[in-house]
Design a protein around this nucleic acid. Structure first.
Length: 815
RNA sequence: GCCGGGAUGAUGAAAUUGGCAAACAUAACGGACUUAAAAUCCGUCGGCCGCAAGGCCUUGAGGGUUCAAGUCCCUCUCCCGGCACCA
């Protein structure tokens, strides 16, 4: 009987679904395992990246099922977002119809891959039953001051016509369409993620099973720096606060610089001869795009304000400048400039003829201001620094900070790069922000009992910009929940990253109608034991989810403070070293491959070709190889496997098969436990198959061979479930292979009686010896020295040293 | 500049964490079966020298530690990714 993947795969997909084989059922008496892959945006078609992502998760889920865990492996759709809105404008339809159709197509494709999802738990974030809980969580944040509205300079994508969070700006452009982002002054809603800066950073330390680079990226993004805020007295009694991480250089500050946007600038220059010049400068800087302003080769520009500040440590009066190299968003928007020990200050001082003073001397060659070519930024001995002269600069940092604090000259401070999360979007296809504006009561949150604030359906899309909801009169006009007077609804919607920030909790109890999720269910299933997805979410989604989990934990709704125990970031699928994309025209369509080879072959190729974290170059020949292997296994099951209960014979070949079988169980198990090394797990299964092919026809009819095939089928089942299910039944089993249990190996069968010792003379392999494993060190040593080949190489030499590594190797040093 | 990850046959990749480098597969070549092809099965397959036995060399480059280094340490080159006028 040939391997007809087509009938076989659809047959089992249907039966598995009917039998609800993958239903997740909590059972406190048994260990749980929650495996989750990042859910897709329903674009309508799955691509190879999805296939790889979901195949990895599926193998994990099936392996854990076979290990006897209660497995939760859900799937859903991240269904809000701009593409649906754009498609609606283009096709003159509405985003909901379009999205639901896409979900349907995509689900059919996922079903054809045979993934082990509990489809009863499917969620779509665009449904009111889901997004009402976005609103609910938002209101909880509003109550606690963690959601707030403020006017500020924001990132604006001119093409998407909406604001963007800092995390959504990639290389100065929009993360979705790459259009350069511009700044705009707007009043917008924010979530106070910075309230969690400290634990978002500290808890990274506990994420031992996260990739190093994701941790590093999040650390970078949060950007904690320790330093001092120093108080400089200005004229008219104003105090200028300046942040520095180098308090050890304070005695070398020869001027201070404010960002052009700094609130004190206008006051400082008022009435000064420099006033007009400074105003012109500020105006010019304001017109520059952020990208141009931070461009690397641009010369730093600035001008003198005419004002002076007093350095608190030495009473020195130093000039106050305004310059474009100081950013309002970071620190206090003002710096002290130490040209001798900061390269940017150095260049600026040279350009504008500002004074310089050395306060840190390197240990070898003393610095002279006049001959310095660049700033000296490393540590050394402090000079010109009053009572700190002669001290080591790195050691003095802390002392000088405490001293300044003590003398009220400044205070020890920590600054962060992380900004609050801007969540307002001027788009339609998202969660309405549940807020009402009342002339007498102000900003009023929609009461919980009035949720959800439903997204209206009768909206026309003009593509002209501005929040589409603002044009829907019936939506905008409402009554104030507090006083009952006419009021106006917020017409912006929430950023779609909100939807994915807690969906993993919703999967624990997707039908829960009284809360975002059932506390008990979440207590059982959380945290996600294994999360799998692309590296592109290293900061965005993964940071937001960590924030949400911490907030929900503070509400007492969930016990864990970190959502994802282990994280696997799968590599990209490439074609000839390039990303698959429509514009390159190099897309390999999963549906085509499934049609020609079947889902199992596709899965096997993807799993075997590279470890899951590594990039995977698509290779048609590799597909053929996977296909050949499955056929090879099929013939094995079809031929010798069916001889169950066959003759009880023993032979060398069968002994080898038994040994190999136990080795394979051990290897596959340890590859799965030690980080999902699917490629090597599969290669060891291939070795077992090769061993079975070496048997004679008689040997193949033996019960030993049949047993080996049974084990083989179970070991292979997580990787290629359909063919294994079929083979399992061919072997006479009446229930699913996934009801079987993972085989265990007998360590005693793996113990060798003899070991091959490699014998090295002066580091080179010269001979091999087959010796009993019980041989003592001295015995091994003598045997090695007596070996004729060894004697050839040691003749006329004195043996100085002999090292014996039990069961492995003898190393002889002779000269 | 700072941080993180890499570099191994013609190719994708292995290497029990310091103990026989190249498992498994792909491509290529050879053989068996066949009238022939496909499929299948078996074999060869890092480089150089050699008829062979065997020897020498080989994990981006150079140095070091060690009986022993792809693996540890130092210096350097190149590639990928993140952050960055961050004070």
């Amino acid at each position: 009987m040939d391997y007809h993947f087509k009938d076989l795969e659809s047959k089992w997909q249907k039966i598995w679904a009917e039998d609800k084989l993958y239903r997740a059922v909590p059972d406190k008496a048994r260990p749980k395992y929650y495996v989750l892959e990042m859910f897709p945006y329903p674009s309508g078609r799955i691509h190879m990246g999805h296939v790889r992502n979901y195949t990895i998760g599926d193998v994990v889920a099936r392996y854990k099922i076979l290990q006897g865990f209660q497995v939760l492996h859900p799937m859903g759709f991240d269904a809000f977002g701009q593409p649906a809105e754009n498609a609606a404008i283009k096709h003159k339809s509405d985003p909901e119809t379009w999205t639901l159709k896409c979900i349907d197509w995509m689900k059919q494709e996922l079903l054809r891959m045979g993934f082990s999802y509990d489809w009863d738990r499917e969620i779509s974030t665009c449904l009111a039953e889901y997004y009402r809980w976005n609103q609910w969580i938002f209101l909880k944040m509003l109550e606690r001051g963690l959601a707030y509205k403020k006017a500020s300079s924001v990132n604006w994508c001119p093409s998407c016509e909406t604001t963007l969070a800092n995390e959504e700006v990639v290389d100065g452009g929009c993360w979705r369409c790459h259009t350069p982002v511009v700044e705009k002054e707007l009043e917008q809603w924010y979530l106070k993620i910075t309230a969690y800066s400290d634990c978002l950073l500290d808890d990274l330390g506990g994420l031992e099973n996260w990739p190093e680079r994701v941790i590093a990226m999040q650390k970078n993004w949060i950007g904690k720096s320790f330093g001092v805020e120093i108080f400089f007295k200005l004229e008219k009694g104003d105090i200028l606060r300046v942040f520095t991480t180098r308090p050890d250089t304070i005695f070398g500050a020869t001027y201070v610089v404010l960002a052009p946007e700094h609130p004190l600038v206008k006051k400082l220059i008022s009435g000064k001869p420099q006033e007009q010049e400074v105003l012109r400068f500020i105006d010019r800087v304001a017109k520059e795009t952020k990208l141009a302003r931070v461009a690397e080769d641009v010369k730093k520009e600035g001008c003198f304000t005419g004002a002076y500040a007093v350095n608190p440590v030495n009473g020195e009066k130093i000039p106050v400048w305004v310059a474009d190299y100081v950013l309002m968003e970071y620190g206090t928007g003002a710096i002290m400039a130490v040209p001798t020990h900061d390269q940017r200050d150095f260049l600026f001082a040279k350009e504008h003829g500002l004074p310089m003073r050395v306060v840190i001397q390197p240990k070898d060659q003393p610095l002279v201001v006049e001959t310095m070519q660049e700033a000296f930024e490393t540590e050394g001995v402090m000079v010109n620094s009053g009572v700190f002269d002669g001290q080591d600069s790195s050691g003095a940092k802390k002392k000088i900070s405490l001293w300044m604090e003590d003398k009220m000259m400044g205070k020890i401070a920590v600054h962060w790069r992380l900004r609050d999360w801007l969540i307002s979007r001027q788009r339609y296809w998202g969660t309405p922000i549940p807020v009402v504006y009342c002339a007498s009561c102000g900003v009023v949150g929609v009461p919980e009992k009035d949720l959800p604030v439903v997204l209206p359906k009768n909206v026309t899309f003009t593509g002209e910009g501005g929040s589409p909801l603002a044009k829907v009169k019936e939506f905008v006009e409402t009554k104030c929940p507090k006083c009952g007077k006419p009021a106006r609804r917020e017409t912006d919607t929430m950023a779609t990253f909100i939807d994915s920030s807690w969906y993993f909790l919703r999967f624990c109890s997707p039908q829960c109608a009284t809360a975002p999720f059932d506390k008990e269910e979440a207590a059982y299933w959380m945290p996600v034991d294994q999360y799998i997805g692309g590296i592109e979410h290293a900061v965005l989604h993964l940071l937001y989810s960590r924030f949400y989990t911490k907030f929900l934990a503070d509400l007492g709704l969930v016990a864990v403070r970190e959502p994802f125990q282990r994280l696997l970031t799968q590599g990209m699928v490439l074609k000839e070293g390039e990303v698959m994309s429509k514009s390159r025209g190099n897309i390999v369509d999963p549906d085509e491959i499934i049609k020609n080879y079947g889902a199992d072959t596709l899965r096997l190729f993807i799993l075997f070709a590279a470890p899951p974290e590594a990039e995977l170059d698509w290779n048609d020949k590799g597909m053929d190889g996977a296909w050949r292997f499955l056929n090879r296994v099929w013939r094995l099951a079809d031929g010798l496997g069916t001889a169950a209960g066959g003759s009880r014979m023993s032979s060398q070949g069968l002994d080898a098969v038994v040994k190999k079988m136990h080795q394979t169980i051990k290897k596959v198990t340890s590859d799965m436990e030690g980080g999902f090394k699917f490629n090597t797990a599969i290669s060891s299964i291939m070795e077992l198959v090769n061993e079975l092919y070496k048997l004679t026809e008689d040997e193949q009819r033996s019960s030993v061979a049949a047993q080996a095939v049974r084990v083989l089928v179970v070991l292979l089942a997580p990787f290629v479930p359909h063919i294994c299910e079929e083979m399992w039944r061919m072997l006479g089993n009446k229930t699913s292979v996934f009801k079987a249990s993972w085989p265990s190996f007998d360590p005693s069968l793996l113990v060798e009686e003899e070991a091959t010792y490699v014998v090295q003379v002066n580091g080179k392999v010269r001979s091999r010896l087959l010796l009993s494993v019980d041989a003592g060190e001295e015995e091994v040593k003598q045997a090695a020295l007596a070996d004729p080949k060894v004697r050839e190489w040691t003749a006329a030499k004195a043996v100085h040293k002999v090292i014996v590594v039990p069961k492995k190797l003898v190393s002889i040093v002779a000269s």
